[in-house]
Measured scan of single mutants.
Amino acid sequence: EPLWIRPDAPSRCTWQLGRPASESPHHHTAPAKSPKILPDILKKIGDTPMVRINKIGKKFGLKCELLAKCEFFNAGGSVKDRISLRMIEDAERDGTLKPGDTIIEPTSGNTGIGLALAAAVRGYRCIIVMPEKMSSEKVDVLRALGAEIVRTPTNARFDSPESHVGVAWRLKNEIPNSHILDQYRNASNPLAHYDTTADEILQQCDGKLDMLVASVGTGGTITGIARKLKEKCPGCRIIGVDPEGSILAEPEELNQTEQTTYEVEGIGYDFIPTVLDRTVVDKWFKSNDEEAFTFARMLIAQEGLLCGGSAGSTVAVAVKAAQELQEGQRCVVILPDSVRNYMTKFLSDRWMLQKGFLKEEDLTEKKPWWWHLRVQELGLSAPLTVLPTITCGHTIEILREKGFDQAPVVDEAGVILGMVTLGNMLSSLLAGKVQPSDQVGKVIYKQFKQIRLTDTLGRLSHILEMDHFALVVHEQIQYHSTGKSSQRQMVFGVVTAIDLLNFVAAQERDQK
């Protein structure tokens, strides 16, 4: 057995438009009618409502009807409940999964919650491996369901041993009777949507819809739904939504950006999952974080739909894509998950301010006199920076000697690579993860907040409520011999709460 199987392995699926269902090699399930009293909570997966979006479509000038398939009504709160249950049931049916076995899954959280929910009911041990950027709410729900959680670096490539995929496979090879159901490759993922989600949409719309818009992560949702719609409703256009920084969209030119990270969760990847059939997507749109969270908040405030950030991405694209539809036509959007997962993220004004998705003037509360002053007023001194090749031991000596707790790590040209902190280095040394002679590049981390000289002290204040420091950066445009230009970030300084307090105190003292 291989040590790991690539999540982007070539698909062996034989589905073709027009091929009889009787030739399918898979076990198919028909939607079942729910009894009045459910035998367990797993029976509350599927049969989610279709809700008309009344205000947002009109606000953006849509002539067509805009409908939302509300997947956050599933038992675990997301569309991923469907595939989690289906993968477990299919693994039980073919004898792969037996009582007492362990389920391991690399996930952005929602599939993990679905699997942990099913594992709690069915009696399996469950280990979820997820990147650090995923919300604390997801972690809390997983723990409450009895799952064990392993976190991995957000910026690790999918084929790196440190990625959530790599760590999951390492655990599988170490733990007896453990299984990775593997949402990236498992046919049960798109089949769950082909058999149930798509049929529900067709039934709820009486077979009449002209466009379907869905955000894409593993691709199982859009693949399964689109294949069924292509068979039953061939005139329906399928629109895929991919965040900026991901590479799922086609044509490839759409993916060209210097951005590699994004805040919206559960969609987009740096590889093409095996289950994603991009041939059934008629057109791709890219979405960005700001519009995703703005539209998610709009869905909550104006439509009462308590959905997550990827739902915002989907609707932001839908109001663009559906401009081509006329009166009497219908566009369906998939709202994948609930706001429950993001209470401390985009639902929080403070978080939105820190990330730059909300401006101070958007909030009406009274601010102190210094709130709208610029960061450049602080008069920061030149920063202490270190090269990635310097040793951890030497870096600790320098920081202690100069009285700093942290320093930016830059390359020879001064471009920011990340940050090192005294606390992080000492804990890594004590844990045996690094040696004093190791290069400081081994303990770089990139989960820090950046701020510009033109940003306000109010925004800085919000950042420092949650973080010990902020890195002050400025952009530099560099022209190359080819005539092309590129933008790079340079370090201007490091600012802490002490710097802000000293500035405010000094100004008030001078005024007296």
Rank of each mutant, 00 (worst) to 15 (best):
G356E: 08
E303H: 06
G483T: 15
G328C: 10
E253C: 06
T496C: 07
L373H: 09
H394Y: 15
M343K: 06
L426Q: 07
G268S: 02
E377P: 09
I463D: 08
V420S: 13
T314Q: 12
E465D: 14
Q256R: 15
K402Y: 06
D499R: 02
E465I: 02
T454C: 13
G266N: 02
V315D: 02
L500P: 15
W351E: 01
T454S: 04
D467T: 06
V264L: 07
G458D: 15
D362H: 11
S486V: 10
Q507D: 13
S348Q: 07
D242I: 00
R488Q: 15
E397T: 10
K442A: 13
G432V: 12
Q354C: 03
Q435R: 11
V473Y: 14
L429P: 08
A301R: 10
A413F: 15
D337F: 03
T344R: 07
I451E: 03
A296S: 09
S287D: 01
E250G: 12
E324I: 14
I247M: 11
L325F: 11
V473N: 15
S485E: 15
D499G: 01
E250L: 15
D242Y: 00
Y342D: 01
Y342C: 00
W369K: 07
T454H: 13
N424E: 09
V410A: 13
Q406H: 09
G393E: 12
G356N: 10
C307A: 06
Q376S: 11
S348G: 02
T482F: 15
S246D: 03
M490R: 15
V317F: 05
A318E: 01
T257W: 14
P388L: 14
D242W: 00
R278I: 01
L378K: 03
G423H: 05
E401A: 12
T261K: 11
Q323I: 05
S287Y: 04
V264C: 10
I498D: 14
F492D: 13
K367D: 03
K402W: 02
W369T: 03
F404Q: 04
I451N: 12
M343G: 03
W371L: 11
V281L: 12
N424G: 14
N255F: 07
M343W: 00
L299E: 04
L399F: 14
L501Y: 13
R509S: 11
G309I: 03
F404D: 01
I390C: 11
E244Y: 09
F293Q: 00
G328V: 12
K359T: 13
I463V: 15
L306F: 09
E508F: 15
K484H: 09
V473K: 11
V409R: 00
T257R: 13
Q376E: 12
Q450L: 15
T395K: 11
H480V: 09
T456C: 11
W369S: 02
F448C: 15
L335R: 00
V494A: 09
I238C: 07
V415N: 02
T314Y: 05
E303G: 06
V315P: 07
F346N: 03
R330T: 10
S381I: 14
E265F: 00
N341I: 00
K367Q: 15
Q487I: 15
L380S: 10
P388D: 03
P436E: 13
K286W: 00
A249D: 00
L422M: 11
V410N: 12
D282H: 02
I334A: 04
L399R: 03
I239L: 05
L399M: 12
D337I: 01
D411T: 14
Q302Y: 09
V494N: 03
K283N: 15
W369G: 09
G379L: 04
T391V: 12
S348H: 11
Q447N: 15
E263G: 03
E303L: 08
V386S: 09
T395H: 09
E290G: 14
S338R: 05
K286Y: 02
W369N: 06
Q329H: 08
G308D: 01
L426P: 02
L380C: 08
S437Y: 12
T385R: 13
S287C: 15
R400V: 14
E253K: 12
L426H: 13
N341D: 02
Y479W: 02
F357K: 05
L373F: 12
N255G: 06
A311S: 15
G356S: 11
L358Y: 05
I238H: 00
A497M: 11
P251N: 05
T294E: 11
V281Y: 07
E475H: 09
K359A: 10
V472M: 15
D510T: 10
S338L: 01
D362F: 14
E401W: 02
E303W: 02
Q439F: 15
E401C: 15
T421P: 14
G245D: 05
S437A: 13
W370I: 06
S461E: 11
E327L: 06
R340L: 05
T364L: 12
I451G: 08
D438E: 15
N255L: 07
Q323T: 11
T389F: 11
K355A: 07
F346A: 04
I267M: 05
G441M: 10
D455W: 08
L417E: 06
Y445I: 15
N424S: 02
P368Y: 12
L347P: 03
Y342N: 02
Q256K: 12
V275A: 11
T456N: 14
P368A: 08
Q447A: 13
E465Q: 15
A506D: 13
S486A: 05
R459H: 12
G312N: 01
G268T: 00
D411K: 12
M425Q: 12
E324G: 09
I416D: 05
N502L: 11
E291I: 08
L399E: 07
P243L: 02
S246A: 05
Q447D: 14
V333E: 07
H480D: 11
Q259K: 13
E253Q: 15
L387P: 13
V315C: 11
R330S: 09
L325V: 10
N255T: 02
V333D: 06
V317M: 14
G240S: 07
W351G: 03
Q487R: 15
G328L: 08
F448R: 07
K320Y: 15
T279D: 02
R330K: 11
L254W: 10
G312D: 03
A249C: 01
L426E: 09
Q450I: 14
Q302T: 10
L248V: 02
L325N: 01
E258I: 14
Q478Y: 12
M425S: 04
V409C: 12
V491C: 15
G483V: 15
Q406D: 02
D289C: 00
K484G: 11
E412A: 14
G458M: 07
L384D: 11
E401Q: 15
V491I: 14
V495P: 08
V495F: 14
K345D: 00
V375F: 09
K402F: 09
S485D: 11
V415F: 15
T482A: 15
I396V: 12
V241P: 03
V319K: 04
I416R: 08
I238G: 00
I267P: 08
Q476L: 14
G441D: 14
L380T: 10
D510A: 12
E365V: 12
I272V: 12
A318V: 02
H468D: 08
V420A: 12
K442L: 15
T395Q: 08
W284R: 00
V420R: 00
I444L: 12
I451T: 07
V409H: 00
N288R: 12
K433H: 10
G268P: 00
G312A: 00
V420N: 00
R330P: 07
A301F: 15
I272D: 05
G312L: 03
L248A: 05
